[in-house]
Design a protein around this nucleic acid. Sequence first.
DNA 1: CTACGACTTAAAGTCGGGTTCAAGTCAAGA
DNA 2: TCTTGACTTGAACCCGACTTTAAGTCGTAG
Lengths: 153, 153
Amino acid sequence: MRPVIDTRLPIGEVAAQAGIPTSTIRYYEKQGVLPPAERVNGRRRYDSDMATYLAVIDLAKQAGFSLEEIKTLLYGFSDDTPPSKRWKALAGSKLAEIDQRMEQLAAMKLLLQEGLDCECLRLDDCAVLLTHLSDRRARPNLHHPMSHISGRT
Amino acid sequence: MRPVIDTRLPIGEVAAQAGIPTSTIRYYEKQGVLPPAERVNGRRRYDSDMATYLAVIDLAKQAGFSLEEIKTLLYGFSDDTPPSKRWKALAGSKLAEIDQRMEQLAAMKLLLQEGLDCECLRLDDCAVLLTHLSDRRARPNLHHPMSHISGRT
DNA sequence: CTACGACTTAAAGTCGGGTTCAAGTCAAGA
DNA sequence: TCTTGACTTGAACCCGACTTTAAGTCGTAG
């Protein structure tokens, strides 16, 4: 029988399709984020849907999952667990993390904006600063924290 | 003349007040985030407002500034530049960064939540996934990306 | 036969923000 | 005097997610 032409893609092709470096694909494989690719003469060969598979991984990364979590998402369940269940098992706590992070960012934003409104010449005088510092601990002694900055003592 | 007692604090004291390890203070000094402390017999001595100074640094970190940016904030301006001007010079772009990050998080959140609502048994069928994937590139071929996950091909 | 480009591997380097370690120094107390 | 605890230093290590490098292999074109 004559040899069937291998239409499957080399790593460079997949990488180009997925818009990532080949090194990333090899890295994912080594980390177990991708299953070991079949080799033809030692070279990896991929099915044409590999770029999509990589896009799914990318999507999960966008959703804030670490590679370790993505491994769990992909391979951490019994084979007959549908995607929806896998997702649910992990998305809840991740959502909580996101909410927490959003609150942090909102606080940051407020702090930055208040700082913009502030016209103080020396840190000692800065009401904004004092407010936020006193949030953080039981109001330590506020003499002249950055006074060497704002000019003379 | 009798020697004046040095009331200034050793590093451990300051660290305790600030609620951080001594190693962090040494690290900050080495990185130039803190000015070199005066030494008495080779040991660092700090004024009593040092914990507040550290709290200011912490506050800036909370606001999303890197140590490098904090250095700029603290020492990157001519001595007579008041804190308000220093802050303004840096806060604007940082605010933009935050907004960008918030949008990202919002997108993540949406993705996670949509995933929660989804009941699909195989990724091929997942409308949520397809929507987000098609956002990301010009709709690559969607055969059975994670089919080995969801059970049979 | 040789050169080339795409591929292979293991190992090391990168980034930021620290922590940990080993070896030595200091002052005070028993 | 000896010990103890707090300190000093430089260097090495840690995390995650990769990238880079070095040295070797493969098939094909000339």
